[in-house]
Amino acid sequence: MRIVIAGGHGRIALRLERLLAARGDEVAGIVRRAEQADDLREAGAEPVVLDLESATVDEVAARLRGADAAVFAAGAGPGSGAARKETVDKAAAVLFADAAVRAGVRRFVVVSAMNADPRHAGDEVFDVYLRAKGEADAYVRSREALDWTILRPGLLTDDAGTGLVRLEAHTGRGPVPRDDVAAVLAELVDTPATAGLTLELISGSAPVSVAVKAVAGN
């Protein structure tokens, strides 16, 4: 498979790139800065330098053409203000979805956030973030040309992954290592039967492959 990841230098994305490359997939990661390219090459991914805050749909579609799947793992980051929640967490996700449709890439996986909701109230930066992620998710769901899956992890940690998770429509709050989020994403990309599902993810007791097969109905 050829898989293109938006936000290719993120902490989840770099882990995902290593997993996909190790299993023999062809991986490309979209990054904003050329100096991030070596980190992607080290992870086994092809770096694609493109700023999703200023790129056009056609420019992004050109990078997606020929891919079997697209993963949106970009984010403005915890230190960013409300404006970039709108331009990255929402607008870049919308752009990436539109570009996938234009490029004919049906399989589309989104890294969202637990409690993301377009109707989320409040004016703090985190409120804007949850609203932006919710609006982006709603837009992706509206694109009938996409076989989308939306993953909403709990509290992200840098603890070593255990390979044991709880993956359900509603899990409730809880932590989950980024290692395990990446492992679940790798399984989801390869499991089209999860299309149309919005899933929450926290640490649990089920091996990753078992958890994904369970939600896919296999």
Rank of each mutant, 00 (worst) to 15 (best):
R2H: 12
R2L: 08
R2E: 06
A6G: 14
A6Y: 07
A6D: 07
G8H: 03
H9E: 06
I12V: 15
I12S: 08
I12K: 00
I12A: 11
A13K: 01
R15V: 02
E17A: 15
R18D: 03
R18Y: 03
L20D: 05
L20R: 11
A22S: 14
R23F: 05
D25H: 14
E26Q: 14
A34R: 14
A34P: 14
E35I: 03
D39V: 13
L40C: 02
R41D: 12
E42L: 10
E42P: 00
P47Y: 07
T56W: 05
V57D: 13
D58V: 12
D58G: 09
A61C: 06
D68G: 15
A69E: 11
A70S: 12
A76I: 04
A83Y: 07
K85Q: 15
E86V: 15
E86H: 13
T87P: 05
T87N: 10
D89W: 08
D89A: 13
A92R: 10
A97K: 08
D98G: 11
A100P: 07
V101D: 03
G104M: 10
R107T: 07
R107L: 12
V109R: 07
A113S: 15
A113V: 12
M114T: 07
A116Q: 14
A116V: 09
A116F: 09
D117L: 12
P118H: 11
R119Q: 13
H120A: 09
G122F: 04
V125E: 15
V125L: 05
V128L: 11
Y129M: 12
Y129I: 03
L130V: 03
R131V: 08
K133Q: 12
G134A: 13
E135R: 15
D137P: 07
Y139K: 10
E144I: 02
A145F: 06
I150T: 02
L151T: 00
P153W: 02
G154W: 01
L155E: 12
L156R: 04
A160W: 02
T162D: 04
G163P: 01
L164M: 11
E168Y: 02
A169Q: 13
A169N: 04
A169H: 13
T171P: 01
G172V: 06
R178T: 00
D179A: 00
V181E: 00
E187K: 07
E187Y: 02
L188M: 09
D190K: 11
T191E: 12
A195I: 11
G196P: 09
L199S: 09
E200D: 15
G204T: 02
G204A: 04
V208L: 04
V210I: 09
A211N: 11
K213Y: 12
A214M: 11
A214W: 06
A216Y: 05
A216C: 09
A216E: 06
